[in-house]
Amino acid sequence: MTLLKHEFKQGFKSLAVWTAAIGAFLAVCVFMYPEMENEMQDMSHMFSSMGAFTAAFGMDRLNFGELTGFYAIECGNILGLGGAFFSSLLAAGILSKEEKGQTAEFLLAHPIGRKKLLAEKLAAVFLQIAGLHLLAFALAAASIALIGQEIPVKEIGLLHLANFLAQLELACICFGVSAFLRRSGLGVGLGIAAVLYFLNILSNITEQAKFLKYLTPFAYAEGADILADGRLDGEKILLGMGLSAVGVGAAFWKYCRKDIQ
């Protein structure tokens, strides 16, 4: 638990900044909703007639006139993308930063096995992502209550849960990559999150790219699908868990054999 606590302390500032930024943007968007509510019907009509762009972001299937529809788009953009970048950056750097900062020698000269080190670092990543999501959910729910709307607990809960699971998957993939890196994981983390995000957009635009839905965790965090179905896509989440296991397995395989520089 020592390393877990250490990682949490080390990452606390970054977590606080990302959580504050994401939470604040979510709240601001929710506060804008009452003013925009009346114009939303027209906007929905406008957005639904923008062709591929509409499909790309799932706006053809969402009703902007309702809080849940409005929130799904907002949540997808702010929590979905912001949280994905946070999770990817965190996980891609969690192992590589030790070699980049030359602290690996200090750490690994202590009696902590590499498997235990990996387990505690992964737990630290998960906990920080969970912390971000819990606070973001609390801020979103509080904002909705503040504008006098009834909190759609199920819908909002499912949207947040889906994003949380998607970001755990991203983190697992980046964690696997981190074990292979000796330098900063910054570029790799951002790159992985961005590529997987655009794969989902691509799969929304064209039928031929629909199979990409099975490769990217953003697919099962799609607000339009979650609201339409009233549930999460278990099949895609299960597949995502498989990819997560591959990422974590790769990290354990590589890092337990790695020569530390």
């Binding site: 250490h6 080390q10 900062g101 030359q102 602290t103 200090f106």
Partner: peptide
Amino acid sequence: PSETAFYPG
């Protein structure tokens, strides 16, 4: 170690 590095902050 010959060269020492610690965690920043």
